[in-house]
Amino acid sequence: MFGLSVRWSLTSAPAGALEKLRAYVEDESFTRFANLPGLRFKTWRAREGEWFEGTYVFVSAEARQEFQNEFTAAADQAPATLAVGVAPVIEPFEVVAVVRGPAGFRSAPRFEQ
């Protein structure tokens, strides 16, 4: 599997930036990526005051590269870039394996209400 990490620093972000990013994920991003061809899954991760990240896993190197090219070309206008005021660091990676534990898999609790 073929992954991509897109990470924005929150160290100089304006107050409330992470809450804006959470709302963006809920209101727009979640649905957009639920329908992205070639995407196996995406996670959104954050550490308050440190970073906000999208982690993507694609079915093929070609699908990852196509998304990476499109994203990189528009990264300066991405909602997260505009919210935090800095461009992201974009890193492709290999996914060696994924395991689903006995507790199963859930979206964020906010999406399950």
Rank of each mutant, 00 (worst) to 15 (best):
V59I: 14
S107W: 09
R106E: 09
D27R: 10
L82N: 10
G49S: 05
Y24G: 11
A23N: 10
F33N: 04
V57K: 02
P92Q: 01
K20I: 01
K20Y: 02
F2I: 00
S107C: 05
A15H: 13
T81I: 05
E62Y: 09
R64N: 02
S60V: 06
V86R: 05
E66R: 14
R22N: 14
S9A: 05
L82Y: 09
V98R: 08
P109I: 02
A63S: 12
V57L: 14
P14L: 01
L36M: 11
A63I: 04
S60Y: 07
F67P: 00
Q113P: 12
G49M: 02
T72Q: 11
E70S: 15
P37I: 08
V89K: 14
A74H: 14
G54Y: 01
L18V: 08
A78W: 15
E53T: 05
T72Y: 08
Y24K: 09
V57H: 05
A17F: 03
L82I: 11
T11V: 12
A17E: 01
A15G: 10
E48A: 10
R45A: 15
Q65W: 09
G38M: 05
P109G: 06
G85L: 04
L82C: 09
Q113E: 15
F2E: 00
F52A: 10
A63W: 05
V95L: 09
A87P: 04
D27K: 13
L18M: 10
L4D: 00
A80N: 00
L39K: 04
S107G: 11
R110G: 07
P37K: 05
E53W: 03
V25H: 03
V25L: 07
R64C: 01
D76P: 12
A87S: 13
E19T: 14
E26K: 05
E66K: 13
K42D: 02
V99F: 13
F105V: 15
A78R: 10
A74F: 11
T11E: 15
F58T: 03
P109Q: 02
A80L: 01
L4T: 00
E26Q: 10
F2V: 00
F67N: 00
G54E: 01
T81Q: 06
S60G: 08
Y56N: 01
R100P: 05
R32F: 15
A87Q: 09
V99D: 13
T72R: 05
P102V: 14
T72I: 07
V6A: 01
V86W: 04
F71H: 03
R64L: 03
L21W: 04
T72V: 11
A17K: 00
F71G: 00
Q65M: 12
E94I: 12
R106Y: 11
E53F: 03
Q65D: 14
A87T: 09
Q68K: 15
E28T: 13
A75G: 07
V89L: 13
G49N: 03
V84E: 03
V59Q: 15
E53H: 02
F93P: 00
F52N: 02
P88S: 08
Y56S: 01
V99C: 12
E112Q: 08
Q68A: 15
T72G: 06
G16L: 03
K20G: 04
A108S: 10
A63Y: 07
E28K: 13
Y24N: 13
